[in-house]
Amino acid sequence: MLSVELAYWQQTLLRTVGVLAAVLLPAGALVQLFLFKAVSFMQSRLGPMEAGPHGSLQLFAEVGKWIQKEDIVPDRADARLFKLAPYLVVGTVLLVYLAIPFGPDAVFADLEGGIFYALAASSVSVIGVLIAGWASANKYSLLGGLRAAGQLIAYELPLVLAVMGVVIQAGTLNLQRIVTAQADGSIFGFGAIGLPFAITQIVGFVVFLIAMQAELTQTPFDMPVAESELVTGFMTEYSGMRFLLFFIGEFAAVGALSAVAATLFLGGWYFPGLDHDANYMNVLGPIILLAKILLLSFVVFWVRFTYPRFREDQLQKFAWTVLIPISLLNIVGTMILKVAF
């Protein structure tokens, strides 16, 4: 434990600052690195180049631009709900980060049912999206909001079921102990790299990544925001600061779910060869986790900018007839193996 004793308000302040940093740093990093640059390279262009060397300050320029813009609420919109929605979306992402461990002691709240809490919190954002779609008084927004609701509910299930395998294998719902279980584990006696559950739970990992893509409404599952059909769906009427909040919410959620995935399947803040009880891991841990987040979110963006999108009914069919049976089989298999070994 940390040797310094802090008053309650000091702890609270520290946690608030910490959560904000934990949300904004990965979100900013992956927007700048992947959305602006890597994707541009995939399309054989350079991306932003003017703000700062190689456009490295573009993010600040964008934020500055959005903050300056006029705050427009459509005439027929339900103004109060319209204004509330973006905060709900961003707020839920902040809540997800609460449960994620960044080091042996660096954790905002060491919850006993941590993974259960993280997934539950992440799905609250659908309410924000639904409110945004409904309150905008726009047909595209309404269609987008309803699509988002249907989609997020359908993919919540495979997401949770994919996690079940990990939970069974680790024997705990606590994220911290899931990480240590991976660090202490061994593959048939070979313990040098620990036991990242991505190896034993490869099916669960793939299902989780697909469901995560859908949960984040990224292509090929981006029907709620489909620009070419619904003109960015539930975000159509938003501009300026509120759009920025949606934007932060979207990419912070990529970071958050990547963090959950990294914790569950890739060993979280632990890196093979390091001592997972040592105090220095409190500093090194967040960096390792950030690297893993970036790795996973690169896959998210890579897929996003390669594939066309599904249709709404195909998406539902895919979730209910492919992903859920597979993840159920995975759970059964994991249970049998768990009892056998």
């Binding site: 995939m42 399309q43 054989s44 262009r45 292509t219 090929p220 981006d222 489909a226 070419s228 900018f305 390669t306 594939y307 066309p308 999108r309």
Partner: peptide, 16 residues
């Protein structure tokens, strides 16, 4: 056609 179906990259190759 890719853009209309949600894939953003093909149109850049097309323009190039």
């Amino acid at each position: 056609m890719g853009v209309q179906l949600g894939a953003l990259t093909p149109v850049f190759y097309a323009f190039r």
